[in-house]
Amino acid sequence: MTAVPVWRKRNRREALTVWLGWIAGILLFAWSWKAVSDATMWVFVADAHIQAADMLSRMVPPRWSYMERLWRPLWDTLNIATLGTLLGLAIAVPVAFLAARNTTPSRAFARPLALLIIVSSRSINSLIWAMLLVTVLGPGMLAGIVAIALRSIGFIGKLLYEAIEEIDPTQVEAIQATGASRLQVLTHAIAPQVMPALAGISVYRWDINIRESTVLGLVGAGGIGLQLMASVNVLAWPQVTMIFIAILATVVASEWLSAKVRHAII
């Protein structure tokens, strides 16, 4: 009698690796959940639904009249996002050119430095930047603008340098072959190729920055978040709802606008 041929999707070792991976994942989850659970007062959680219902009943109806005091903070929020994006853009563009393999003046020095700037900017949430800047510059819009800018550098820088690395090298060669200088190659061969990407990335980041600048006020960095924090602190839930509605409208509007602009570019 011949042996029945055996077919398995994975060989023994692969199967073992997959199982070990699952077990490790489950153990990690169990440990995490235990840590979270140990630090939780389950008594409070037990009546969460009562809290939620209570909160909800307090939140509606929103206090519509509060809106007249929100226009100025909304205007500030918009300005924080826009000016922050512009400032970030001004710093991110040179950083991206230093970071891209095909445009960096030195791979040993400038490129690692530029990458370090990008990574540190990306790792730190704009709220942390804002906390820091509020202690340095004092509360207000300026801290918010700089916080948004610092966070945008990494985002724009990373996407832009990847776009620069993907350009068509023969167009660059053609311009080099005319006897153009390094800077001329940059403006005549590289810039035209990355311009659409840069515009798209900037608008995209602006859209994100609008969302982020709505909450910067929680740490004192200006914008509508200040009103939110104040209202939450005094448990003025109808005002909180009004603020949520204002934020929602702003975010939807900015998303619509950025989608329109990106569509027009492409």
Binding site: D168, P192, M195
Partner: peptide, 11 residues
């Protein structure tokens, strides 16, 4: 220099 794939700056 004249190139195979023209190498014009497309945009």
């Amino acid at each position: 220099m004249i190139f195979q794939e023209y190498a014009l700056v497309e945009r």
